[in-house]
Amino acid sequence: MGLLDNMKARLGPAKEKVSDLAQRHGGSIGQGLDRAAKVVDEKTKGKYREKIHAGTDKAKEAVDRLAHQGDGPGHGVGSDPARGGEPGTPPRTPPPPTS
């Protein structure tokens, strides 16, 4: 067994735990990301609004991918239609900007 195989074997349980936590608390995580984005946007007086929202969207997508790991075909990495994922699934719409 090589080093990479050994690392994968040791990280397996942690990966499952993270996926489970993302499934159970994904909504709360998303709300926290939105609140943090709003605070940062207010502190920077809207100067970096687009970058903040882009980063927030990417973080939410990462949580979503983690939550759907191991759900079977069509979930997890590569399931986002905007990135060549499952056909027939409507693309996500970004949240409206907050003032």
Rank of each mutant, 00 (worst) to 15 (best):
L21K: 09
T93F: 07
D57L: 08
K45P: 03
R24W: 02
G84M: 10
K17C: 10
G30D: 05
T93S: 14
G84R: 09
G78A: 05
A62C: 07
R83S: 15
H68S: 13
A67D: 04
K51I: 01
D80Q: 10
G46A: 05
P87G: 08
K58V: 04
L21G: 06
T98D: 11
S99R: 11
G27F: 00
N6Q: 12
A67T: 02
R83D: 15
G55K: 00
A82D: 15
A9S: 12
V63P: 00
L4T: 06
Q23T: 05
T44Y: 09
V40Q: 05
D57T: 02
P97K: 08
S99D: 15
T56D: 04
I29G: 09
R83L: 15
E61G: 06
P13C: 06
A22M: 09
K60Y: 03
E50F: 07
K38V: 06
L33Y: 02
G46Y: 01
P81E: 03
R35T: 11
R10Q: 10
D20N: 10
V77W: 12
E86Q: 15
H53L: 11
K17H: 14
V63H: 00
I52C: 05
H75R: 09
D41G: 04
K8L: 14
V39C: 03
P13G: 07
T98Y: 11
K43T: 06
D20A: 13
P13Y: 04
V39I: 14
R65V: 15
S28M: 10
K47L: 15
S28I: 06
K60Q: 05
P81I: 04
A59S: 04
